[in-house]
């Protein structure tokens, strides 16, 4: 298992070099985007930010306004499978290269990752204070009035955010693997001793 540092903007080539199991330290610009932003883009809404070669972070942070600046207090990942319906189209149209979230995503997203050059990184769910420390500053916020603070698009400048590649651009998914192996274990456990 190797540790790899990656930085925005992310190239298709750099992303294709990553494999399931790689530990990542990610730096640079990251856009938060969750349920409402995904539906909005899917329905044809115009993105307020340039997503190409960027990272979408499935996260609704806790942010407060202090001394005229935004301060991120908590910023852990939210469940990614809720964005499965929208993501293949968004990867294709906006050429995003990195998705950060938790719990992994399904077959269509995995295929889109292979086809267009994108990876899925799992961050530690609930580690919101930990990750907030890696946020250097908030560069801007969009759609906050329309979607509320949790669903808004926050431009975060991040340093050394830790994550692990769980879906790579070669069709491998750790989530799929564990789902299948745990199904076999489940059968054994149910059958009892």
């Amino acid at each position: 298992m190797s540790e790899v540092s990656i930085e925005y903007p992310f190239s298709a080539a750099a992303v294709r070099n990553l494999s399931v199991g790689d530990r990542i330290r990610l730096s640079g610009l990251v856009f938060t985007g969750r349920d409402r932003f995904h539906k909005y883009l899917f329905d044809g809404g115009k993105s307020p930010v340039h997503l190409k070669d960027g990272a979408i972070y499935h996260c609704g942070p806790v942010v407060i306004r202090k001394d005229g600046e935004w301060k991120v207090l908590a910023a852990g990942p939210t469940t990614s499978s809720r964005e499965d319906l929208y993501t293949p189209k968004i990867i294709e149209e906006h050429k995003i290269r990195v998705i950060i979230g938790k719990g992994g995503m399904g077959k269509a997203t995995l295929e889109a990752c292979s086809h267009h050059g994108c990876v899925y990184l799992q961050a530690v769910g609930g580690a919101a204070a930990h990750i907030a420390q890696r946020v250097e500053r908030v560069q801007g916020v969009h759609l906050i009035k329309e979607f509320g603070a949790a669903d808004a698009v926050w431009e975060l400048i991040i340093h050394d955010m830790e994550a692990v590649v769980t879906m790579d651009a070669h069709g491998n998914s750790l989530h799929k693997r564990i789902r299948n192996s745990s199904k076999r274990s489940l059968r054994v456990v149910i059958a009892g001793d």
């Binding site: 530990r23 996260c59 609704g60 942070p61 806790v62 207090l73 908590a74 910023a75 852990g76 939210t78 530690v124 609930g126 580690a127 919101a128 204070a129 930990h130 907030a132 420390q133 830790e162 692990v164």
Partner: peptide
């Protein structure tokens, strides 16, 4: 790695007086 991060997170949240998880 996950469990260590979780424990570090609990310590940071307590020290900084910030939410343990953003989903309150």
């Amino acid at each position: 790695w996950v469990l260590t991060t979780i424990l570090e997170n609990a310590a940071i949240a307590r020290k900084n007086d910030t939410p343990i998880c953003q989903d309150t």
